[in-house]
Design a protein around this nucleic acid. Sequence first.
DNA 1: GATGGGCAAGTTTTT
DNA 2: CTTGCCCATC
Length: 790
Amino acid sequence: MSDPFSWDDSGEPDFSSPPVPREGGIAARARAAAAGAPRYLDALNPEQREAVETLDGPVLVLAGAGTGKTRVLTTRIAHIVATGRARPHQILAVTFTNKAAREMKERVGVMAGPGAEGTPWLGTFHAISTKILRRHAELVGLKSGFTILDTDDQIRLIKQILQAENIDDKRWPARQFAILMDGWKNRGLEPERVPAGEAEAFANGKGRKLYGFYQERLKILNAADFGDLLLECVRLFRENPDILADYQKRFRYILVDEYQDTNVVQYLWLRLLAQSTPESPQHNICCVGDDDQSVYGWRGAEVENILRFDKDFPGAKVIRLERNYRSTGHILAAASHLITHNDGRLGKTLFTDGEDGEKPGVCSVWDSEEEARVIGEDIEQLQRQGKSLDEIAILVRASFQMREFEERFITLGLPYRVIGGPRFYERMEIRDAMAYLRCVAQPADDLAFERIFNTPKRGLGDATLKILHDNARLARIPLMQSARMLSETEDLKPQQRQTIRALIADFDRWSAQLGSMPHHELAEVILEESGYTDMWQKDRSADAAGRLENLKELIRSMEEFPDLAAFLEHISLVMDTESGDSDEKVSIMTLHGAKGLEFETVYLPGWEEGLFPHQRSLDEQGRAGLEEERRLAYVGITRAKERARIYFATNRRIRGLWQTTIPSRFVDELPADHVEVIESNSGNYGGYTVSRFNSTDTFGSSYTTPGWKRAQSYRDNPSSAASGARAAPKVIEGELVAKSSGGSNFQKGSRVFHIKFGMGNVAAVDGNKLTVDFDKAGRKMVLESFVETK
DNA sequence: GATGGGCAAGTTTTT
DNA sequence: CTTGCCCATC
């Protein structure tokens, strides 16, 4: 048998691979030994191979950027299975993101071949915790069907509690308390264990009490927030040693991805599961991570977890992966040298056998506008060389930086995609639609009911809600039922009563259809009949069309699930849609969002003190903050395979004010031998461009005076410098790909719709370029291919 | 109960 | 310069 991944043993009821001759684990192992090293190991370098083959005892794999971390993890899983050490369902493999989990699952699946058992315990910390909690929900005061609240639900719940406690939520914002509580949960602290000082700090000493109330409310609602998923799981393990022992026995091998990003609860969770048991006397835990890529300290990640791994797990074997397969020599050298400025590293030296390649470029520009223009031109040049736009990314420190690039790219007609924005499932319309579905599937879901009971507007407000609430609390029934009760009495005004009665009738009808209609069709019916789709169709604002698109996408994605319940479970934990468009586009995203990705060409704008490293990071975290920012810079550079360009502007508009900035200290920390200073060729107007490499005098100049601003605006747009409004984006002659030579399809005065700017009137037509007065966004110059007639 | 104007605040983000 | 939230008004 050539496939090392078919094994036998049909002892598991859920095991559905085709019948194969029964063999014992020992035989399988013997066969693997006889066959010599399996093929899948051939593709590994010696260090990777060691990381895969060291199966006994704790292992820490320090995997530098681009060193084949995922390959090691997936091959290791395959290897454990192939050698008969454990079967897939005895392996626990945790990741942080659904994306990472999905990728790993796919790759393991490919290695294992068709028909092999899946890996049921490969998933995110949260997904696996949920799975465990659902089995033992009663032990932590929940019922198995508990709902998972997202941040939005969480805030609304907190608001209710603050109100009930008569706390001024102006002085003590719910959002702030949510963050505080999240921090406690991340640190594994239940209400009674929050340090007194911290607990007192909120709402004049009421912090702990509020946290307690909140947890009580969650239990009553049969709900858990994201933090609870981990925290309650840890509590479950602590309070029920027999259950813990069961899982310890089950999970013979534990693998952890991105270990440098684990927080305290996740660490506790892992430590409990990895404890020695008679069946498994060794800690067969393998953590993979890179201390140099720890950039989530601000949300509770503890780099210390990875730094003290060998103390937590004595006798741990540490394996370093330092051979980089991604970047060229100069890029690697630049990143490596930069990161040596950090203290407290475990230390790795990345190297590559590849070419030296192009040196990373460093380029000084006048302001953020020029930055966008220069980068745009650079990309167009790459495009002319036939490079794929999919292999180009702009990585920013803060999302406000994205706007300028978007505007520039729209003008240039350069396709781009913004990655990161509000996630699909966080969008208002998706959450509203989900709330309707939740109300049908889980009639006791009060938060869902509250969300949609007056969406679309049907004349029900706070006053009515309060009556429903009071009645619900009195009778100890869910809101939906309370509404039903009140629709039959005289407690409400006739108008409201009528509306509620109709709403209840709707829900009854939909619930009845639940069994007789495919759930995605039902969803469509619900959105239609509730008037929800109508609401957006009538909406004339810029993003209404997009929202309707999203709703369609939601319904489409439902088809992939067997029923509504399965869909809801999935969506509460995952729901990131891969936007199906396959057109080539430049990616714009934050440095955080870029972690784990790679591109041929990477642009790194905004390397200025205050922005990067970010001032707030320095103020709040001091040296640790600076080091985290530096790791972020390291992550940024190491995303590049062939080309990296760093930019810093002399002037940047922050909160509407122009400020003179100084270049980031990280620029000077780059190794001079491995970077190249680039002149911004287009920005050299009258010698205004200041390259700090030519002239260090960028300090203390009064570049924000009105005169300078005028000069700058004139420079960009000599013809219209006098126009008071925001200068129209400059169009570079002859650079635009002219299309439809036979004149424009648009005329002056046409009413048009633009995906970003909304509705507007065409003010002027110039070939395929339109000047449009948008209702909301003002005058913009856009390409005609970006608008449609309405 | 809806709607619009005024005011404060404004890294990074997954689940 | 934006955006989002709260409050006062119709």
